[in-house]
Design a protein around this nucleic acid. Structure first.
Lengths: 213, 213, 213, 213
DNA sequence: AATGAATGAGAGTTCATTCAT
DNA sequence: TATGAATGAACTCTCATTCAT
């Protein structure tokens, strides 16, 4: 994404109706965050220099440190930001499902859509292992913590096979990420082929212990 | 692991009976590879400097480039090495299983054991995303390619629910890695708690479509 | 010294009886000067950033350049300010002495008192060597120039051994500074031990050539 | 001093007769130390960048960190080096004196000669206040500690007025430095005018309590 | 086969100063 | 008179890589 595009988007943000226009400083901060997401996603944490980030954001190098104490810090914020957005995307996608199984399938679909639209962002997570281990744990734990209650509820209702919801949650997330990596990130078409999708549905169904799925 | 230990181990290797003693050059090469695994695992690719690796291996800095063209290259070799060893550990562990389900359970157990014993090595993989994307793909594809035939065979025998073995293989690997990360790498005890293990067995059983599991 | 304290003091200054209340601008200027003295004394010229100075003064960064053309300039003013105050403190202290020797002793005492009360300010001088050589020379020359006439007078009266008053002035100043540095700045108690003081009196007495001192 | 000169000098050093030739690495280290002395003396600690120092030494920037851990560290070494050399110069100069007074006068003369020849080095000390306070104290304490015994001996012999030798040592050092600063560093001619020298002798004589001096 | 001194590009970060408001 | 966001040059320090020995 070029400097111009970031700049343009933010100019828009500032006047978006129904939202208080961002003050100058906050606009710059937002531009840097966005630029950092792009650059981290494109070249990884270590090759993402402050120069690249500020160029992408269209500001001077020194400006970076007006808003972030360090490269680490902006990385943590990017991860947190991404975390919120994935969870939002997934819960939005699942809204309106009538059965548990449908909810799960829509959630997965939402996750895949997000991954396809923000392939760069998704990759950021995997680097966190050494860059910011706490950020990595926080990311997964947040997701799991939001997942568990709905699984518990479904278990209580008998919609899902009873068991430890934590292990199940981890297993489901893992499957989603693996399939996303393999068929979205590694494929040119950036979408899950229908036969894979169908098979995935069957596997998820079995994991949940849903009869006839 | 200290320099001395690497040196000692290699000295032993050189005279191990039944194996041709490594020529001096090959011993040095092996020492570097081993040192690189340790250092990459401990501090990650980017913080693993050539100085650290050569110090760990007990050789001079310049010696490194006698055996490896670049830091990248040794990373790729480390990944390949790791790949072989995990696969070996898993197939060894599964040997002698009488049922498909038992084979899977033992394979997972072997993977967890390996992870617990080489936590450092396991973490190397996650960095490959940006360091060497091809190495990452190669790693997973090798594993999957070795997994598929046995799943196909089991499907043919009716031991495992019929379906696309590739998707299933990915799903199973993913679950194994996630549980390994969460309960082995993130936990002090470096082992899967029994109740998690039991739940995992149930989930795997369901994923495979094994009745009564 | 915190921002609040500087502000408070200055508010007082503004209404001190017998002195024209400072106009707002002059108050700000004075606050910056005071803040600069504190910061220069605390961390030295180079670590004293404009940010620190303006924070200490409780004004915005840009305000600084309304009153001072550069960091250098405020340093020069701080040195000049300090110079005036030391000289004032010393001559005040010596006032009312009945003999030449007493005058000298009281002057030294005044200097030590000032040093003990403003250890920070004293240290500013030593940095001037490279920051502002002219300021350094001006500082010493002003002091010497004010010292010489009184020494000449005393020599004329035979109270002090005849000789070149300039060299004697430099020597006396140097001794005062060295003792101040060693026993006030380097000691926890921030005061000259009695036996050192007694010995110093003897040395000064001999330097002045005062019989029986 | 240009790059070429440092290089030339060191090449000489390496083959100086009666001295083991410096190994390559040690030659480079010595070149850096020398260059640092020059640059610190010329522009002060803060304006002495690593670039300037390495250029002066005729090596690449990175080479600096092969020999010194930081800019601070080389500064400390420069101060220690200087300390040794001044003390050496002074004791050499005083050697062969027949009376105490002569010894002192020659010592001062040696100090002034050293200052005149290495004006740059002398100025380094004054910056140590904030750069490396411990280095500053160490410097003065070493000098004083070497001075005291000879003063004590002279006091015991009745050659010098009895009293606390520490205070006297500080006072004498201070006078020497002040005169050196004023008449050597601040004057174009780089030498003490005869009348100042004569007056200084009288003052020193009185400080020591030497009759008829 | 091995050494280790040397390189130099590039990293993250700081800060005196400017200027639109 | 005052603000504070923005600048960009300069800083110290790291490190993969080269090469004379």
């Amino acid at each position: 994404m070029s400097t111009e595009r970031v700049a343009a988007e933010l100019a828009d943000d500032g006047v978006e109706p129904g939202r208080a226009p961002l003050r100058k400083g906050q606009r710059t901060r937002r531009a840097l965050l966005l630029a950092a997401e792009n650059v981290f996603g494109a070249v990884g944490y270590h090759d993402a220099s402050i120069v690249k980030i500020t160029e992408e954001a269209g500001v001077a190098q020194g400006t970076f440190y007006l808003y972030f104490a360090s490269k680490q810090q902006i990385f943590d914020e990017v991860v947190a930001d991404l975390n919120q957005r994935v969870r939002h995307a997934m819960s939005e996608a699942a809204r309106g499902a009538t059965t548990r199984f449908e909810a799960e399938r829509l959630g997965f679909a939402g996750f895949f859509k997000f991954t396809a639209e923000h392939p760069a962002l998704y990759r950021v997570i995997r680097q966190a292992e050494f860059v910011s281990p706490e950020a990595l744990r926080r990311h997964y734990e947040t997701i799991i913590d939001h997942y568990i209650p709905s699984l518990e509820e479904a278990m209580a209702k008998g919609e899902v096979a009873a068991g430890d919801p934590t292990v199940l949650a981890w297993a489901l997330i893992a499957v989603g990420e693996a399939v996303g990596m393999r068929w979205i990130l590694w494929n040119e078409e950036r979408r899950i082929p229908p036969e894979v999708s169908a098979e995935l549905d069957r596997i998820i169904g079995r994991m949940l212990g849903i009869e006839g799925s």
